[in-house]
Design a binder for these strands. Structure first.
Length: 471
RNA sequence: GGCCCGGUGGGUGAAUGGCUUAGCCAGCGGACUGCAAAUCCGUUUAUGCCGGUUCGAUUCCGGCCCGGGCCUCCA
């Protein structure tokens, strides 16, 4: 029996995780909408899922992981109205919608690699599963869950009595304070489009024929259709950001459970909290689009962002600031230094330290099993890295922990690993070396100060002089 | 208007009905260094406010204040 406990949004409790099929887990993760680069807040969602997947693998489970890629535009503002994000991005850049999608999909996959996220088994694109989406909409229509308006086919949420349960919505209370206008003719405010018609006279780049007319799918239906297509009508885990709970996931559940007569459709729902930038959520709509390359441009290793992520629990909001990011980068660099030393240790752990070693191993995985408590796992990691165990014992543990952490403790070097080649700087360093050799420290320090003035720090190590740009 | 999550030291961020309330970063002290840097070792400071429950609350409950999120594309 698994000792892994996960917080299930559906039940609002930590529960012992039991796979539907013994030894095997099926996960669906809500992935990116690829009309723009993924910002650091988006990436937190994928780091969270990666941590989850590593925890499941560490339990010895076979994991089938599906992530969708939303490459069909949805809407920019009001509910089921407004401009289409993909189409607008295409217009602005002059590229086709398909080219925009391909570009940002590629960037996202590259970000995942740089963050050492394990590859998913399936990356499924909405545009490549239009028939599955139409099929599900037809099922819902045949069962009487839909109605047709001028601009699309809608899901009638009043026909699905459990609609408010998942997110514990107070529909009446929400209706009273509704902030915006809505599509004319909708029977209830939460009703949503399964299929949208292209606006009259507008030639969209992305549109398809359907039984109801030419148009494009509603946003929510792709996840219902594709997850069931790849994972079956009943699967273990579904992940996403907390913002998805009240609308997107609520609607997915309505479509899937109504369409397939299931309950529960998914056993465990897990949601990551948001990253805060200053006092606000990192948000595309507010223009806070910090991306991984913004960190790299500051000389921060992408994996330092993973370290940053692991310092807080996934279900808590996490504050991002460059000060904290730099602090994390420092911590990460030091942890890597310890790992480099440990993994070069020769020999085997001493028999008499076996108990201490196994104790730390147990502490680490107990933290991971307790709803992915990465901060506590990091605490154990540091205790081992800086503790008094032998080199071989540290090597054994850190390589074991690496399976859960994904920080590169097995093969990464602290940045900057080497001084890049630069003849001018090397000549100055040689002058300084000569000055120090003749104990002319004033001359040596003058060179060091001059380099520092242009943002270059010198380190005298026992293996020679290293330098790096600090800004 | 409704719903949700928080408020722990200088920053960040775990945990807990009593037991020394983690870890990281910063600061301070020390080692090392010609001096630094880097690294290592040691180390100071904390549970928003007011009530309640309890032998005992930072932890549970209620109220208040403050911050964030969702209800509209959003991880």
């Amino acid at each position: 029996m698994s000792e892994l406990f996960l917080y299930n949004t559906r039940t609002r409790r930590k529960e012992r995780f039991e796979p539907i099929e013994a030894g095997r887990v099926r996960i669906y993760s809500c992935g990116p909408t690829v009309y723009a680069p993924q910002h650091l807040g988006n990436l937190r969602a994928y780091l969270f899922v990666d941590l989850l997947k590593r925890a499941l693998l560490a339990e010895g489970l076979r994991v089938t992981h599906v992530i969708n890629i939303t490459d069909v535009g949805h809407l920019t503002d009001d509910a089921d109205r407004g401009e289409d994000k993909m189409e607008r991005a295409a217009e602005r850049s002059g590229a086709s919608a398909a080219a925009i999608a391909a570009k940002y999909t590629g960037q996202w996959l590259d970000d995942r690699k740089r963050l050492r996220c394990l590859e998913a088994d399936v990356y499924c694109k909405a545009t490549e599963h239009i028939p599955q989406q139409i099929e599900l909409a037809r099922r819902l229509e045949a069962k009487g869950y839909t109605y047709l308006l001028e601009d699309g086919l809608y899901f009638d949420t009043s026909k699905f009595p459990r609609y408010a349960d998942f997110a514990r919505l107070d529909l009446a209370g929400q209706a009273a304070g509704a902030r915006i206008g809505d599509v004319a003719g909708k029977r209830q405010p939460p009703d949503f489009a399964l299929w949208k018609f292209a606006a009259p006279g507008v030639q969209r780049q992305q549109e398809w024929d359907s039984p109801w007319g030419r148009g494009f799918p509603g946003w929510h239906i792709e996840c219902s259709a594709m997850s069931v297509h790849y994972l079956g009508t009943h699967f273990d885990l579904h992940t996403g950001g907390v913002d998805h709970i009240p609308v997107h996931h609520t609607n997915e559940i309505a479509q899937s459970e109504a369409g397939f007569d299931l309950h529960p459709w998914v056993n465990v729902w897990m949601h990551n909290e948001h990253l805060k930038l200053g006092d606000e959520k990192v948000s595309k709509s507010k223009g806070h689009t910090l991306v991984l390359d913004d960190l790299v441009a500051r000389g921060i290793d992408p994996l330092a962002y993973r370290y940053f992520f692991l310092q807080a629990h996934y279900r808590q909001q996490q504050s991002f600031s460059f000060d904290e990011m730099e602090a994390a980068a420092t911590g990460y660099r030091r942890l890597l230094s310890a790992a480099v030393e440990a993994r070069s240790a020769a020999g085997e752990p001493e028999p008499e330290e076996r108990d201490a070693l196994e104790y730390e191993r147990g502490e680490f995985w107990a933290a991971v099993r307790d709803d992915l408590n990465a901060p506590r796992a990091m605490e154990v990691t540091w205790r081992v890295a800086r503790g008094s165990l032998s080199g071989p014992a540290k090597r054994e543990l850190l390589l074991d922990f690496e399976r859960g952490l994904g920080l590169g403790l097995d093969n990464q070097q602290p940045q900057p690993a080497d001084s890049p080649a630069d003849p001018r700087i090397e000549a100055l360093l040689e002058d300084r070396r000569a000055a120090r050799a003749r104990r002319d420290f004033a001359a040596a320090d003058a060179i060091r100060d001059a380099l520092r003035a242009e943002g270059i720090e010198i380190e005298d190590t026992k293996d020679g002089v290293r330098w790096r740009r600090v800004r």
